[in-house]
Amino acid sequence: MEHIELFFKSIFIDNMVFATFLGMCSYLAVSKKVSTAVGLGAAVVFVLAITVPLNWLLDQYILQPGALSWLGAEYASYDLSFLSFIMFIATIATMVQLVEIIVEKFSPSLYNSLGIFLPLIAVNCAILGGSLFMQSREIASLGLALNYGISSGIGWFLAILAIAAIREKIRYSNVPPALRGLGITFIITGLMAIGFMSFGGMLTGGDEEEAKEETTVQVEAVETESAKELANNTTINE
């Protein structure tokens, strides 16, 4: 249940592009054609699925306050969390390089389709963002971290696919000259983000209905709770 909830939450409610604006640079630059957008989207899912669990392990066993206690009692007071940026980005950069070499060796066809995008990905904010949000949201287990990586990757994939399809069509529309290209893409993304906000009640809606059968007091409690959760979500997103 926890897994399903996290899965849909990261795809729709906390969508990387629409809620947190991660990976916008490549999202805007590579979304002119659907085929290239698919390539980059697949590469992002792939790399997130590898780096988020890996960085979760790093975070749990090296970086968190007291994480080094497995080395011995005298290390238990160490807090290396200030190193997390550099550790995460180093992991990501090396993993991307490694993935590139492995894919090239074992699956040349996949390499040809992902090839040019892989190096780009090392500096895609969505990848580092995945790891940093994994850390700040305190994902509880390795399985959930893997789930978070994959599902937020899928969310990103969906977003770039949608905007690429829209941009292919919009070429035939009569857009005001000054808005052509970048400007209209921004505004469309904004409108899509408004659309995605309607998923916000997806996970809280069910709880309220269940509670309605019980006393009204409890309904109120649940409602304030879900409102609180919503408020929390927005503060995180902002």
Partner: peptide, 19 residues
């Protein structure tokens, strides 16, 4: 204050600048 408006505000800035 919600996130989509940031995109739209930037879109409008681009519009003004290019006009």
């Amino acid at each position: 204050l919600l996130s989509p408006m940031a995109l739209i505000v930037v879109g409008i800035i681009i519009w003004v600048q290019r006009t």
